[in-house]
């Protein structure tokens, strides 16, 4: 397992290769993942989400630079939506982080959603595991907070940061309630703009209304990421949250829950792949489908039959 050894030694080419292999679910990768698992658990996984134009990438860039001064190894997974039509994607988030490119202690990877349901969370899952096992202290997962799948991804983080910005037209009411529930830390970025205070107050009110029973009260931070203002405080809060998670035992609870979801997801994905392959190979599927369509049988009977046959 040369690749695995190289990756654990910090060779970025090997890490990158492993992620690609895992993404495409190559045989080689599944062995590597099995062996890597023992080394995981050391990284603090931080999700960052927010609408387009909220300055997430710039903020991530600044947070990472601060962590680098403390000599932490940091990985960034930049997630962009994939065109549902062609499967292709243009991933442009590196643009705002290009001076991190040359930092030996930073690894940046862009991930597309690859058009398939669950495709993205799977890719993020594998990449996170690999980076965690390769001794990255922090793994940032950056997504555009627009769709359910992005929200799902962020949920897999230990700490979730929600970035907002005044004057983007969408007022706070429009923000998905789901996002308020997942945020451990809220940031009003570009806070030198008009409306920043109002946004912060409205956000506070919404959070009070939404209050969940927990000892952690999500703080709201004001930043101007482009000028590095407020970034140190954000880094402080990220660390505080992790300490809270550890001390309250919440970390164990969250990670266990996450493991459970991950396993179920993997089972479902494997099963789906297996079933689709099997059905298309046997060729009888088309025929069965026609029968359902012509009302000769019904979908429920067909599904039961397919399952019974597969799981024999």
């Amino acid at each position: 397992m040369e690749l695995l050894k190289e990756a654990r030694n910090g060779n970025k080419r090997a890490i990158a290769r492993l992620i690609t292999l895992a993404e495409s679910e190559a045989e080689e990768a599944s062995h590597a993942l099995q062996q890597l698992y023992a080394y995981t658990g050391g990284a603090h996984i931080v999700g960052i989400t927010g609408p387009p134009g909220s300055g997430k990438s710039t903020l991530t860039d600044k947070i990472v630079k601060k962590l680098r001064k403390e000599d932490k190894k940091v990985a960034i997974l930049a997630v962009d939506p994939t065109s549902p039509f062609t499967g292709g994607a243009i991933l442009g988030d590196r643009v705002r982080m290009s001076d991190l490119n040359l930092d030996e202690g930073v690894y940046i990877r862009s991930l597309g959603t690859r058009g398939k349901l669950g495709g993205l969370s799977k890719a993020v899952h594998y990449a996170t595991k690999i980076l965690d096992a390769c001794d990255y202290d922090y793994i940032f997962i950056e997504t555009v907070g627009v769709g359910q799948s992005e929200v799902d991804i962020v949920k897999t983080a230990d700490t979730t940061i929600v970035v907002m910005v005044p004057g983007l037209g969408d007022d706070i009411q429009a923000i998905k309630a789901g996002i308020l529930e997942i945020g451990d830390l809220f940031i009003v970025n570009k806070s030198d703009r008009d409306g920043a205070n109002r946004l912060s107050i409205e956000l506070q009110m919404m959070l009070d209304l939404n209050a969940v029973k927990s000892e952690w009260t999500p703080p709201i931070n004001m930043t101007v990421a482009s000028k590095s203002e407020g970034v140190d405080e954000v880094v402080e809060k990220i660390k505080n949250h992790f300490v809270y998670l550890q001390e309250s035992g919440e970390l164990t609870v969250r990670r266990r829950q996450r493991l459970e979801t991950e396993i179920i997801d993997l089972v479902i994905q494997k099963l789906t792949t297996y079933m689709t392959k099997k059905m298309s190979k046997e060729g009888s599927y088309e025929e069965e489908l026609n029968r359902v369509f012509n009302k000769e049988t019904d979908p429920y009977t067909l599904v039961n039959k397919m399952l019974n046959e597969s799981l024999k």
């Binding site: 134009g53 710039t58 243009i90 442009g92 705002r96 482009s226 000028k227």
Partner: peptide, 10 residues
């Protein structure tokens, strides 16, 4: 003044 970082919309 700092330096400008572009917005890449593709």
């Amino acid at each position: 003044f700092g330096e400008y970082r572009p917005v890449e919309i593709l």
